[in-house]
Design a protein around this nucleic acid. Structure first.
Lengths: 191, 191
DNA sequence: GCGCGCCCCTACCGAGCGGTCGGGCGGGGA
DNA sequence: TCCCCGCCCGACCGCTCGGTAGGGGCGCGC
């Protein structure tokens, strides 16, 4: 048993996110987190101020990653439909590579201050994507009979569902991201 | 203040589901349910055996409604792709009309006996739909490059997302169900 | 070789949890 | 009129929760 390197805020957040993702934030106790980390509950409080601080850090990671996508060149330049395609694919990628963070974010419902802030930021993200859908609609690249806000919600609903069923192994991340883009843009039926 | 008619198991389940949907099952206390019902916590136990019994009843309602869809003639007869189209539309309908029940079902993760049973039944439902997708794929009505299990998960991910954002008013149920079917089958881009 | 500070421990707190207990109250049948 | 029973109440139980208090030990700088 080689000695473990000491925890810091970030490594404890890693552990906490895995526990929160598995048990749910409300269903997970600080003792659960402590057990997963191999230390006692009191030791956690040496590094972080409390349970909600762990949640807040995790939510921040997830939201920072999402907003970073919107800053990528391919998300800012070119035809709206192509920007959208890039964003959807990258959101799917990010969901898969930051699975615990996105799992916790997806399940948050605004019952505390940090949760409300996360919900607000998430809504702002959806609003920015909705604007791009509106542009694509004006370009004639998105069906006119669909409400753009609704489309945004359905696409992210599909993409967020990944956190409910993805387990490493069975399907590659590329295959999943490809399928999400395929269904969202062309549908499941052949063209 | 006219006297309220006495509660029974079903009417208390109605109240509990609304509370569970709003606060989350773990985040909701029996006092929350009691307050929403306008009676005391002790009175609830006159009608039901406990918190989990309320959950179990709610989950049963949701799952019964889903399986009932598969028994409808339009879900059993005809070309696989048309059966699938009917199922997806009816699942969306049902999600909207049994919103609290489906909300609670969607968020369940198998941390107790009744939750595990619900997850199992839900998985069985998805498996049956996946079989229909496989048939539609053999008929040439679903793209061959998409894994059928993945397609099922994405479609229901889209449909389940309704419970996260739907609030009565803004959009009609028909418009939402139509959009889900449209995106799932033809995608958001024009044909 | 010694103190000092980082990291973690055991022991404990008040609050809120799910659930229980015995009783009160009011309306319908005898 | 009286009693019974369905429905509900206030008070309380044991337990677990998030969080705190205070101390031990060990490695590192001096």
């Amino acid at each position: 048993m080689e000695p473990r390197k000491p925890y810091d805020i970030d490594s404890l957040t890693d552990v906490a996110l895995r526990v929160f993702a598995e048990r749910g934030y409300d269903g997970a106790s600080m003792d659960d987190v402590a057990r997963a980390a191999g230390i006692t509950k009191a030791s956690i409080y040496h590094h972080v101020s409390g349970k909600e601080a762990l949640l807040e850090r995790g939510l921040g990671r997830a939201l920072d990653a999402l907003f970073a996508i919107l800053d990528e060149p391919a998300a800012r330049e070119g035809r709206a439909i192509e920007r959208l395609r890039h964003i959807v694919e990258r959101v799917a990628d990010t969901t898969l590579s930051l699975l615990p963070e996105l799992t916790v974010l997806t399940r948050v419902h605004g019952h505390s201050k940090s949760e409300r802030e996360a919900v607000d930021r998430r809504r702002a993200f959806d609003r920015l994507v909705t604007e791009i859908i509106v542009r694509a609609q004006r370009d004639g690249d998105v069906r006119q009979d669909l409400d753009p806000r609704l489309v945004a919600r359905l696409i992210f609903g599909m993409s967020n569902s990944v956190v409910e069923w993805y387990r490493a192994g069975s399907l590659t991340r590329e295959a999943i991201a490809h399928a999400i883009v395929a269904v969202a843009f062309e549908g499941m039926t052949p063209r």
